[in-house]
Design a protein around this nucleic acid. Sequence first.
RNA 1: GCCCCUCUGGCGGAAUUGGUAGACGCGCUGGAUUCAAAAUCCAGUUCUCGCAAGGGAGUGCCAGUUCGAUUCUGGCGGGGGGCACCA
Length: 847
Amino acid sequence: MSRYNFKETESKWQSIWEQRHSFQVEKDPTKLKYYVLEMFPYPSGRIHMGHVRNYTLGDVVARYKRAQGFNVLHPMGWDAFGLPAENAAIANKVPPTVWTHENISTMRNQLKSMGLSYDWSREVATCDKNYYRHEQKIFLEFLNAGLVYQKESWVNWDPKENTVLANEQVIDGKGWRSGADVERRLFSQWFLKITDFSKDLLDGLRPLDRWPDKVRLMQEKWIGRSEGATIYFKIENSDQKLEVYTTRPDTIFGASFCAISPNHPLALKLSDKNPDLQTFIAECSRLGTSEASIETAEKLGVFSGVNVHHPFLKEKILPIYIANFVLMDYGTGAIFGCPAHDQRDLDFARKYGLDVIPVVAPQDLDHDDYMIKNEAFIEDGVLINSMFLNGLNIDDAKKTIIEILEKEGSGRATENFRLRDWGVSRQRYWGCPIPIIHCDKCGAVPVPKEELPVELPDDVNFDFPGNPLENHPTWKKVCCPLCKKAALRETDTFDTFFESSWYFARFCSPKADSAFEQSDADYWLPVDQYIGGIEHAILHLLYSRFFTRALQKIGYLNISEPFEGLLTQGMVCHETYKNNEGDWLFPHEADQYKESKKSVLVGRSEKMSKSKKNVVDPETIIDTYGADTARLFMLSDSPPERDLDWTDSGIEGAWRYVNRLWRLVNQSKNIISNLNDTRPGILSENSQNMFKKLHRTIDGVSKDLDKFHFNKAVARIREFTNDLEAFSDVEENANWVRRQSLEAIICLIGPMLPHLGEELWYTLGYKTLLVDTPWPQADPEMLVEENMTVGVQINGKLRGTIQLPKDCNDKTAEEMALNLENVKTIIGSNNIRKIIVVPNRIINVVI
RNA sequence: GCCCCUCUGGCGGAAUUGGUAGACGCGCUGGAUUCAAAAUCCAGUUCUCGCAAGGGAGUGCCAGUUCGAUUCUGGCGGGGGGCACCA
């Protein structure tokens, strides 16, 4: 018999689906919708195995839901703005737009060769002005609604390239490309007020029960809520006060100093007249924000020359220090130091000779001479040295002190969040222009809506360092929309996370003249199932949740959560190889080395990455084995959320199954060729059992797919295929069971092996498409068991099994169990103390 | 440092609410087919003692709860991840 020709078959069915518009959908209020979305890719050049895995998972869900009768929206597009396009422009002199569109076209073809059930008519690319013009409008609406502001903020500045760098691009305090020492500079940047939604974003996590706990926890920590108090300290010889945030207001009587951030307004004011402070502040801002520099930096402070009064101890004066470890953008940018109960404050106090006053003592201790040595006491205990708080525990002391602070007007209970506002300005070319015009007289003026989009110019020059928009001879020179005088365009572009924060809504009406039609969004949103990598657990997913709320606020959307269900898939890993010289080797190079008896060092399996060369190109795999085989392998062995090891033998195994199924259908198509659906009246016992297995398989696979247990679904189908091959029954009606079984296998495997599925469906004589065939239903009667195999234990150890009728009475079960030869010999002359019968499961004899 | 997850054969992984550990796949061993190979098919495959029937051990380690623990509790260890001057 000939072999399965996957090449011909796969492209045949791909074009039939395309001709018939099988996957194009329209809003249909009479049908239940299901929106399945995979994180859209950055068009970097070619697809990688991570994409193959991601899109296979999504496609199985989409095809499964479609077969179940849902109106399935399954779109695909391109997250097309980003830095690699600019780097390519610099390196290869190709304009970013050309580079990007070439990549999109390559990758679109690659995706199409995978047989994914996308509605390609909804494709969007974020670098398309028909996409980003809506984004500019949304930004202006946000501005109107008070969700946008402009602020000076510190950035990483590469003095050699004259550009701002993202934190990720600063390595050991140096620019990743130039190697120049990165400076901190104050820049005017646009911010989105994500912190307006801090509490809402936190509370909104709780109902997301179809999100992984891990992601919810990560977002919770990122938002970082804490409870405490703001305390006002009166500044000595002034009517002004210093506001300080603390989570330990109970330790107020142990305060021995205050410290403010070098960027605190008070610090800046005081430094005007104090050159020493000026020098210190300048030094602080020179230090990078990178982790390494924070780790190594010494905790330093200088006395500001100003003191504050303690709010309760009238005679007590606390010095204000300017300290390099106090962050301006957390809390109020000022702290009070209680050295006895905070390790960092203790170190600071010892260094500058400040008091250490214990105010919480361990429960069972002689409090009178309790002293703090080199370790701060941070556990719960009893309040001491604290006037009206003495004797209380920490929790009660907190409540009491906050009440009193509020009553006396010297403080208030405060809820604080770690989350910061989202700075969206990027000094880069290949992004969405920020639609603002800067006028000397009128300030920052929004571009009038009728002038949108602000288009990116094509004629830019990458020969100079810095932002090509800034360097463009004419683009930024415009008139102020208000006073009509000469003004300058904003030359910054948006952070590319801006585009990906609302694309799921655009897919609902990708051709609309507005960002999206509200009625479409009302029908399709929220996304029922979102699938992508865990690496977006915080940034992209948090921004999208924020955007949805912001869009709700400006009246665009009626929902606040964009993604009802979330599946975070694991990485695709592969062994790494090195030669004796320590150079990384591609897998095929490693094979060549082995063949020519040269030694290869095999390293552990790691995420596929170009730098370690442990990559397998999906196109090669699809050429060699076909898309179905690649898809099956992606689903087979590992659960989707776990990392997947790519192995050659694994893909071979998937390939074997594809061929085996093809042979099985082609071998048996003649004997089962009648299309008669009527169930024969009598089935032999053998056939009846096979028929039951068939329904158990349908039931099991459906439940597995509902829970995204794709590996288990595959295992179950393979098991049933094994059963079918082993099924030998010469009864006439057995062929009817064979046919039913084959059809079920084809339907169940269809979402995973869509091309082979269609081909075999056709082979069985169907003129309709498998994709238009409803999901098979398990007959509940066939799931009922009449006989159970029950384990028999003695003292918890398995000694045999017995066949019992389902739900038989305990007495019969006991008798049958005790009758087993093996059981009799082991019990021997021992007394039976107890017999535990768990119906249909187990019998345990205790001796 | 703090927080979270994870640990099952040679390997990836299965095991309803605590109830027959190892489904399915890979690999390996033996056999059939072949001049030979590839492909395919059949049998076996947790370790261990045994010709066998059968026995012993076994889900990172140590305890505990229970008639019974991969599953629950406490402690320890390995691996992975998140956060980290956060007041």
